[in-house]
Nucleic acid binder design. Structure first.
Lengths: 189, 189, 189, 189
DNA sequence: AAATAACCGAGACGGTACGTCAAGTCTTGAG
DNA sequence: CTCAAGACTTGACGTACCGTCTCGGTTATTT
């Protein structure tokens, strides 16, 4: 009972969080800034999320679920190129912030870390599962565990590229990833 | 001129940093705790490292450079299993802390981030380059870019497993990684 | 028009306020605690009293008006002893809380402060006026302004004793107050 | 060892506290305002005083100890008039704030309450002790406990007048206090 | 009987201040 | 010039109440 929560507050809080996350990163993201930008009081935020990590997790969870592109090329290589370049963009734009939150919250709150991992896995699965099945139906016979392999390797290499190498996932790299790693792997041996 | 720096301070500071990094992670690592555990004053730390991220980078840089195991199995698969399981252990034990520092420092100090990346790359290269060459010399003909591919894929998949999946790199996973991903990739086709 | 106020709410609110006031003092008295203990919603309290100070004033105003004891000793000293010891008990038990409210509300709301003073004065007058007149009628000729003097000095000394000295108004002190201060004063010279 | 506390900080903090106490009263006195006005950081204040009540106590303790005027009139009544009017001014200007702090801190911290009482008693004693002795030496024979009585009654009546009656201790009231209460009391009977 | 109007509980809301923590800088005295 | 100790500014943290504001639901009148 009692006054129901103002749904528009939820939205503005999560939006403010996402935009700040993109602008300044997890570390520099302050609750006070979220409150100020969203027009909500700090208490209103803390009523919903017990701390910064939980807020960020919710914000990323909430963000408009981008849907991967339909495979249209007709051949496996073309479909993979489209899929992987889209995947790289998603990771670069949205996942990195969540990774920061994950690192920060991992030790102090195992439950929250698990929650963030769930989101990351869900997103990566959505990015690789369905599209690849469609690509397979386009005619090429692939090993039955191809989708799993793709989901395991492609995001890993992309994240590694961005975080450890610190270099962009540009077109040449996408080509290299598809031609030298993914295609050999998927086509089996 | 003046009193020379006490080198024993360097060691105790870096050791304290490393142990705290392992215990509580980057986020929860406080300079005060480092000072207290190392017996050094905060001034002494800041005289050497401009901030927390730099300290952590130096600590990881300094840590005893573990040397990968000699390939002894005689066949490529056996060598890879030994190499990868050792690599997984190294990453789990030492790299994760540095990754936290990397995420935290990425936005605020590009130069430092680059430094951390350099360390990470150096370590990963050390882990994959020489051993693989030896494995190759054991007689199997591999694609010429095999070493590069291994350095690109193996750490990526391991880090991804630990961070995103949150699951340990145990023996079954190592077997899967070698048999289903690395060997097909290295043998090329 | 509309639904009439539930008078039982008034009672439980004021009772809760009084008991909390005695237990924790004005400062630590929170509206939320009053609401919780009285079973009333905060709205219900604020509909009746505009803020904490007003609530406390009303609570003290409402409390069962203790009536001073009849002068029965027959002589002025005995009557005064009875009267003053009763007065000391009243002040210690009930007035102190109101004094806290008075101090807190003095600056922010002059009107309310005046209200609280009115209550305090009314009570002190009730405590001193009538009883003294009776004592006078018992036969002693006193200076015509004796009642005024008593009302001015006795509560002042008692409050001062409790608040500044922080010591109880026990029997020896009451004796001292009557013998060394009040009697000489009232008998005039 | 280590960097010594900055004495100028102590001064500016206490000064800011005193001036704010006079301006807005104890209740409305915020630590943030003290910090801002004194130019010190909040932590610097909390390093010295564990909470608001302790800060206020220290501020009042520190304030320049006003010395009561020399008895110059030559007769007891004149000396008393001078002394009491000075006392009334001191109480009105400085003591009321401390009383607020006393009320606020009484329940939560008995030790602190005792500290504040000590200050109040010390000041009141200083205000009444020495001057009265001098007045006595001016030739009038007074009861030996006259000084005690004065210290007990005069501040009590003045505080009561200001707080409960809410009226100023102006000249007519001072006259009344001296002529109708203090002189009869001191001269004995 | 229905409509109206104030009541009541619950609890969300914007604020203000709290007291704490850690980061990185500065100051002292000693070596 | 270095070191240990520790004070300092800054800025954010998460919490506690304040007094206000919806809600859904409940009485009593008043049409």
């Amino acid at each position: 009972m009692g006054r129901p929560r103002d749904t528009s507050r939820d939205l503005s809080i999560l939006d403010a969080t996402l935009s700040l996350l993109t602008e300044v990163g997890y570390e520099q993201l302050s609750m006070e800034a979220v409150a100020s930008r969203s027009g909500a009081a700090k208490t209103t935020i803390y009523r919903r999320y017990r701390d910064k990590a939980a807020l960020v997790a919710a914000a990323v969870e909430h963000r408009s679920q981008a849907t991967p592109p339909e495979p249209v090329a007709g051949d496996l290589r073309g479909d993979l190129l489209g899929l992987v370049s889209w995947l790289a963009r998603q990771i670069a734009e949205q996942e990195i912030g969540l990774l920061g939150a994950l690192f920060a919250g991992m030790r102090s709150d195992a439950r929250l870390a698990e929650e963030m991992r769930r989101i990351l896995r869900r997103d990566e699965a959505a990015m690789t599962d369905e599209p690849l099945r469609k690509a397979i139906r386009h005619g090429e016979e692939l090993s039955p565990r191809a989708a799993e392999l793709l989901a395991e390797v492609a995001p890993a290499v992309i994240v590694h590229r961005i975080v450890i190498a610190g270099e962009p996932c540009d077109e040449p790299f996408i080509g290299h990833l598809v031609d030298d790693i993914l295609l050999p792997l998927l086509r089996g041996h």
